[in-house]
């Protein structure tokens, strides 16, 4: 499954980059996030509840950040274990481009899911991933650009 999008955030690039590396902000913005621990600058661990309609699956994710060219570009990869529901793994490349009045966040992500989740929900994964990433960036924009919230 592949996903890509471009989001405008009316903040300077450095601030966007910092926010994306802020555990508190991530915890607040990742849909269903119950716990997020920053083991180091590059290693994160998160526990979240994935809720899609009646389906609820608890996942624990290990995320590895690779800031190869901060703040322009970084990659992240992760592996999640959902117990009997299955597993998920994926990676994403995020680019932050300076534009008029703010930053364009461009990401390309690919993910695989396995186990029962894939067997039963395969047809809904693309749409769900789109929904969840939309939710994340909506929350992220709201969180880091407080004046946006009215």
């Amino acid at each position: 499954m592949n996903l890509s999008d471009e989001i405008f955030i009316p903040l300077p690039r450095d601030q966007v980059y910092a926010a994306l590396n802020d555990a508190d902000i991530l915890r607040d913005c990742i849909p269903g996030c119950e716990e997020l621990i920053k083991h180091s600058d590059t290693e994160l661990e998160t526990k979240l509840v994935l809720k899609i309609g009646p389906v609820k699956a608890k996942f624990s994710f290990d995320i590895l950040l690779s800031p190869d060219a901060p703040p322009e570009r970084f990659t992240l990869s992760g592996e999640g274990n959902g117990g009997t529901a299955g597993f998920a793994k994926g990676s994403a490349t995020v680019e932050l481009k300076e534009v008029d009045g703010g930053t364009n966040l461009v990401y390309e992500a690919s993910a695989d899911i396995g186990g029962k989740l894939a067997q039963l929900g395969g047809r809904l994964i693309q749409g769900t991933a789109k929904l969840l990433s939309g939710k994340f960036f909506k929350a992220f924009a709201a969180r880091v650009v407080p004046e946006n919230v009215d």
Partner: peptide, 9 residues
């Protein structure tokens, strides 16, 4: 490709 059985139901 990752070995999920796609036709399990």
């Amino acid at each position: 490709e990752i070995g999920n059985c796609k036709t399990g139901t």
